[in-house]
Simulated assay, not measured.
Amino acid sequence: MAVPRPDQDLEAWMHAYGPGLRRYFRRRVNDGDVDDLVQDVFLRLQAAEFGTPVENVEGYLFTTARNVLISRYRKQARSSAVLQAAWADGVEEADQLSPERIAIGQEEYRRVVAAIVNLPPRARQAFELHRFEHLTYQAIAQRMGITKDSVKELMHRALVRIAEEMEAEL
């Protein structure tokens, strides 16, 4: 069989080598990009000007496919670098830990601990079991000998009371 020339029989090449190119790209990119890359290969092939017939069609196509991938990766790297630079320009530098920020954090911590300590005993027990020992409401209910709904109610009361105390001290 005579080797078709791309300018004369591009459709024959698409049918003969399209599935192989799809397999090649599926191993290297997302499935959504496969058809676009195969199309890029054949567009490059159509745009190429050949003086003589291509002797190793498969080798030529897969070399073109590799070059299409390289171009895609370079384009992605450029756009990623541009996005990172734009993001970096828009991000304000975080405040360093100043003595004032450390003092504010310590005071906030003291207030939270005091609010937890001031909870009614059963609400405090449920809160500590859930937040510090990471028990589920069901496990807390079994440990405290109450229902799961009672645990939910105790947790709700504890959270509301802590929030109220935190707001009151502002």
Rank of each mutant, 00 (worst) to 15 (best):
V38M: 01
N67A: 13
L45A: 15
V113R: 11
D31A: 11
A114I: 01
S98H: 03
L43Q: 13
G59C: 04
L43V: 14
A103V: 04
G59V: 04
A85C: 08
Q96E: 11
A48R: 14
I104V: 10
E49S: 09
L45P: 01
K75V: 08
V38W: 00
D31F: 12
D35Y: 05
D40H: 03
E108A: 13
E58W: 07
E49Q: 13
N30M: 08
F62L: 10
L43H: 12
Q106P: 03
N30T: 11
V112M: 10
S71F: 07
Q84S: 10
E92H: 12
G51I: 08
I104T: 10
V112C: 05
E107V: 06
V54L: 04
T63R: 14
E100W: 05
S71N: 11
R72G: 02
V82T: 15
L45M: 15
L97W: 05
E49V: 06
Q46H: 12
F50G: 09
R28E: 04
A94E: 08
R78N: 05
G32P: 00
V34L: 03
E107L: 05
V34I: 04
Q39T: 05
D33R: 02
N67W: 14
Q46E: 15
L69C: 04
S80H: 11
A47L: 11
L45G: 02
A86F: 04
D40A: 11
G32H: 04
A81K: 12
A115Q: 01
A86R: 06
V38C: 00
G51K: 13
G59H: 03
D40W: 01
V82M: 08
A115E: 01
V41L: 01
E58D: 12
R66L: 09
V82R: 15
E55I: 07
E92I: 09
Q84N: 12
R101A: 04
P99Y: 01
V34G: 01
K75M: 07
Y109F: 06
V54S: 01
E49R: 14
V34A: 02
E108C: 02
A103W: 03
L69N: 00
I104Y: 02
D40V: 02
Y109G: 06
R110G: 03
V113F: 06
Q96A: 12
N67H: 14
V57E: 05
N30D: 15
A114M: 02
A94R: 10
L97G: 03
E92Q: 13
R78P: 00
A77F: 06
D33P: 04
T63D: 14
D35T: 13
A94T: 05
A48V: 09
Q106G: 05
Y73F: 14
V112F: 12
L61F: 01
D40K: 03
V117W: 07
E100M: 07
V91P: 07
E92G: 12
R110L: 05
S79G: 06
Y73E: 15
R28K: 05
R111D: 00
V91L: 14
F42V: 02
V38K: 01
V82K: 14
F42G: 03
D36E: 06
S79T: 15
I116A: 03
V68F: 01
T52G: 05
A85D: 08
N30Y: 12
A85M: 08
P99N: 03
S80W: 08
R66Y: 10
E108V: 06
V29T: 13
L45Q: 07
V38T: 00
S71W: 08
A88P: 09
V82N: 08
E107A: 10
I104Q: 09
